[in-house]
Amino acid sequence: MTDTIVPQTTRKDWTSDQEVRWCPGCGDYSILAAVQMLLPELGVRRESTVFVSGIGCAARFPYYMNTYGMHSIHGRAPAIATGLAVSRPDLDVWVVSGDGDALSIGGNHLIHALRRNVNLTILLFNNQIYGLTKGQYSPTSEQGKVTKSTPFGSLETPFNPVSLALGAEATFVARTHDMDRKHMMETFRRAHFHRGAALVEIYQNCNVFNDGAFEAITGKDARAEKLIPLVDGEPIRFGAEGEHGVMLDADGRLRLVEVSDVGVESLLVHDEAREDPGLAFQLSRLARGPFEPTPIGVFRAVERPEYGDAMTAQMARAEEAKGVGDLGALLRSGGTWTVEA
């Protein structure tokens, strides 16, 4: 709120005195660490940083941050954070949510926050399961998933959070995972500096109820072959030697190819600022699930007026046109008559 130099901080400054209560080995720990390590690098103030969450394991996050925070109600964090962010454009507002919170009970709020482009950094911890309620399938669980509430297998088609966000025309959409701190920090940094709604899907391991859900692609040995890093302006390629790549076919479809077969110049060059979200959407559909080569990184980052800024500008225009509100005049605006004494 002041324009003096932001004090130097360390991870410790951003850590609250509350004992962290996730299950030992939970992926949430590494995400928390990544955020706490990143914040000192961002040149932001603790007092101007707010974490808002809903309900679920991930939603305990604000308690562990030595910032302002609100642990709200199931699914509603984007709505609550919207009110805060638009009325306080000076704040840096983060939303921490899970797959059940953001995509099931709160799906409506998420898409509308994205559509409006409210200045929020939304971290979506996707573990493909309900953890806090002890292991029911979630809207991102794969079809056939056997859980306590689906003993014969889930019948439902899962959401792909990145596809969903792109469908809502989110201006910033990215994916990262809990096994790679550096990638997380880099992705969160980009999301933080994006003015508007930024959604980051984080593949997060729930080692109690859905252990190893992403192991096939995020495991140390699997990454090179199964994660496709998206780098703006670069041909999309992966593999230990960059031997595989993504090509846009003549029929408009994306295809995984061997670079040796097609040549690097045939590969699709990633353009995160592309106005049309169509290609980014296609990229989000490359893998049918976290067992096939899956793109990670920033899918889309485009500029669009931020909602709160637009609202503030509209207020300023109203004030310019009509002058500062005069309550006395307002009360008389419907016509008056006077009764003399």
Partner: peptide, 15 residues
């Protein structure tokens, strides 16, 4: 729900 949620968020911010 979002209507009241946003109002509560704004109240947290001092509106």
């Amino acid at each position: 729900i979002a209507g009241i949620g946003a109002a509560l968020g704004a109240a947290f911010g001092g509106a």
